[in-house]
Amino acid sequence: MGSTDLITYLHYISNWESESDENIDRLISELNLFLKMDGFEFRPAINEEFKTLTDLAVEVRDTTIASDAMQIAADAAAVAAFWSFGVSMAAFVVLEGEAMLLKAVISTKSAKLNEKLKTVDTDIATRINSDVKAYIEKYKANNHLINAQAPKGMDNRTCRSYLMQFMAQVQRMKGTITASIFKQYAASARKVFDSEEIKAVYDALDDLNLSERSKADVQKFMNTLVGLKLPEIAKIGIVLVQGIAMSVMGNKMKIANNTIKECAESAGIPLEEVDSSAFGMMDFCGEFAAVVTVLMSVVDILLEIWDIVDVVQQSKKMCDELNGRIKDNYISYYSDIQEACKKYKKAISAKRTQ
């Protein structure tokens, strides 16, 4: 927390400066579909698909015995594979299939369950509507591209959160987003990242993190933030720095919005800028982080299943979780993505020309 967040953000965004227009257009295409995610009915589709899935899982549970069960072996690569699919149970299916191939115990019932697990996320999206289906497909297809720009050790969740915050800030300031505009702002992030001046903000953010985070501490940081002097060529990057810094203050340091607002105004940052940009972006980023946390929760549940040694108990656990927490997480995902979309739109509604 602190300077690490800001450094990582600027590093990641700056890496996009040299990306091809074609690949950036892929991100913008996904974003345009995301902006349609604020109003659709999803519960009937989830209920129908999980009824089928649970019925199949019950069959497997009721016929599983130790001699022909489907023990699953998990490893780090499997969890990483999950993120290459995005919203999917496909990692579970791949592992299960490989394990059973090795043991030569593939049964008709578990094969049917496998097939449904493999397609359930797409089946749900297809049942909802064509825009949701297209969004899920774009989301999955772009994960490798999004991860490819990451500094070592940065996970998909952080990549996506930073990228969405960046695009929201650009879109709010410019009113639109194109590959050319995207790369212009990414280039500015690189210039800020390479500057000597930004180190003062890093130090001030670390000092704030280690302080009692009193109003005086926040005011001291705001004075440093507003006093940041960058070379002319990098100045549009100041808004990016302000946005991520305030997001860290609100979402990670848990500093009260009123304190941030008062100190920002006192430091000379326009009140309307704090209201429309900083707090709107905080709300959106917090909601989007919740979306990817839901996905990670599905991975955690799968790991719990994989860790069960007794294969009979493993099959029972799988059945229970499919009908319980995994289904609930799919409901949460679609609910949260709608809220994230609404908050993204709110965050970019007050446009600022830069």
Rank of each mutant, 00 (worst) to 15 (best):
F193K: 04
E19Y: 06
G2P: 03
A200C: 03
K51T: 07
R172K: 10
N223L: 14
E59A: 07
M296N: 11
E49M: 07
Y330I: 01
V218T: 09
K317Q: 02
R43Q: 14
V241G: 06
K252Q: 05
G175R: 15
G250V: 04
F182Q: 06
R157Y: 13
K112R: 12
S29P: 04
K118H: 09
M100D: 04
S84G: 12
E115L: 12
L295F: 06
N114K: 10
D155M: 10
V132S: 00
E49I: 02
L225D: 02
D68T: 14
E19F: 15
A290E: 01
A278P: 11
E262L: 13
M222V: 13
D25Y: 06
A66T: 11
L33M: 06
A204T: 13
V239S: 15
E232D: 13
E96Y: 14
T108Y: 09
R213N: 13
Q171K: 10
L208I: 10
A234K: 00
D207G: 05
R160I: 14
S315T: 08
V120E: 00
L322H: 08
V294K: 09
A91Q: 01
A256C: 00
M281H: 14
P231K: 13
D131I: 09
K152F: 01
I128N: 00
V294N: 02
V132K: 12
E265F: 06
E232H: 15
M173N: 08
A76C: 11
K343I: 05
Q219M: 10
I181G: 04
K235D: 08
A81R: 03
Q184C: 04
A340V: 05
L210E: 11
E17W: 02
E272K: 11
M246L: 13
P44C: 10
D194K: 04
R61M: 05
A168C: 11
A80Y: 13
R213G: 11
G268N: 06
F50K: 00
M296Y: 10
K112M: 11
I198Y: 01
A187C: 04
S297M: 12
D320F: 04
V299N: 15
E115T: 03
N209R: 14
E41L: 14
A216F: 15
K261N: 06
I348C: 03
M281N: 07
M282W: 12
M318Y: 03
K254S: 00
A187T: 07
Y344G: 00
L35N: 15
A234R: 12
L6I: 10
Q219H: 08
N223S: 04
F166C: 06
V201P: 13
K116L: 10
S3I: 12
Y12E: 01
D275L: 03
I233N: 12
A234G: 03
D328M: 10
D75V: 07
E48R: 09
C319H: 14
V226C: 03
D121H: 10
S67A: 01
T108M: 02
R26W: 11
S18A: 08
Y12Q: 09
